[in-house]
Design a binder for these strands. Sequence first.
DNA 1: ACCTTTTCTCAGCCTTTTCTCAGGCTGTGA
DNA 2: TCACAGCCTGAGAAAAGGCTGAGAAAAGGT
Lengths: 238, 238
Amino acid sequence: MPKSSENTNYRILVVDDESSISDLISTSLRFVGFEVRTAATGSEALTVAEEFKPHAVVLDVMLPDSDGFEVCRQLRSEGLNIGVLFLTAKDGMEDKVAGLTIGGDDYMTKPFSLEELVARLRALLRRIGVAEINTDDEKIRFADLELNEATHEVRRGGVLLETSPTEFQLLRYLLINADRVVSKSQILDHVWQYDFRGDAGIVETYISYLRKKIDIFDPPLIHTVRGVGYRLRLPAAK
Amino acid sequence: MPKSSENTNYRILVVDDESSISDLISTSLRFVGFEVRTAATGSEALTVAEEFKPHAVVLDVMLPDSDGFEVCRQLRSEGLNIGVLFLTAKDGMEDKVAGLTIGGDDYMTKPFSLEELVARLRALLRRIGVAEINTDDEKIRFADLELNEATHEVRRGGVLLETSPTEFQLLRYLLINADRVVSKSQILDHVWQYDFRGDAGIVETYISYLRKKIDIFDPPLIHTVRGVGYRLRLPAAK
DNA sequence: ACCTTTTCTCAGCCTTTTCTCAGGCTGTGA
DNA sequence: TCACAGCCTGAGAAAAGGCTGAGAAAAGGT
């Protein structure tokens, strides 16, 4: 079970008309400790929001009754200090809309990885000043390993290491779950885009890449738990 | 990340009858720390102003009931030391507006970039002497790079560099977010006019222009974070 | 009206990253 | 100890992302 405590008490409203997507998202968010409600339409979203008073909304821009921006506008006009994470299909072009990232809001194009969704949502909550507890400066640490979300830097013992986007996300996932074993399929579900249809073997490849970058130092931190998955740990904790 | 604290306690009244515009503006202003109220008509503006006592007003000249100048006149007649930032459609009325902006007032034509709106508003508050705290000399610095808002000058190591308006704004945005990664879409949302419908690829072009001007010096400051965005940093941080 | 500057699009080129695969290695249970 | 499933890793093809020059279109100045 991931460290739920830190996200507890944050209420997230997920608005999407495809139930498969909204189920996927809400399951993930609940799993990491958020309190979640869902809505399938714009009007339902407004109704639920009024009573649920969410801290943030995950909002599909394409809704059956109205578009996401209209919903956003109405939520805002009620004077709520609410963060919005838009979801947009990437059919053809980035149908980008002005001001999507102003006001601390953010958006992601489908398909996305669940790990990134959670990371963005946390960043959003931090920005709009709701997450007071989580004041640490956007850095995740384990042993002498440090991952900085704001600068996208990874350091081991102070030494800067280059990582590709996927390597970065994989490492973040391992760090968030430090000391716990995570399976290859868990990793695949969280780090890769949810429509990835390839083999879980790719995780092995990326673990190998990461090891070559961060575990050429001593002691090694990424440990294989045969038949189960991977675990970030210090040798002392053995 | 814009520091919110520094604008706190400044009250801004936004007057525009298009709710999409006034939402866009008020969200941006709230995010950078202003306290905001909105009004959709001239008479509403006067009512709200009386009670809200704003330090400055963002005022569309084209209002359903009266024009912006009339509203401005009435606000002034109440003896308030108030700054006005006019918004005008691009229809040739600009000259008329220019003539009417007395004192520390200012005007912008729609559509504008949100980053510029915030910059102009801050300058306005500074000019009319409301913003006493924020007396710092309108210069943003990073390493040996210096951007002067008042004179629109950019210097690297003391050397004056010519920049086009868009280059200037892009550089300002990078400077405000120095050391943090900003994505191409974030840049687009903040630096380009809010109705820009083109591709995010234009950001690459302008980054290229900027590099040719400021990064022919050593060390280079603009760094690409592949798959994520751009970041202003010193090599020392490496 | 003319010329200059600036904005924006586009395509070609190059680099990095992603992903697959196959052969070799290793830990574990019989 | 042997055999096998699970894991590691190098090689390399394919895809994605990013840079820049060229040039059309728009804006601005005189």
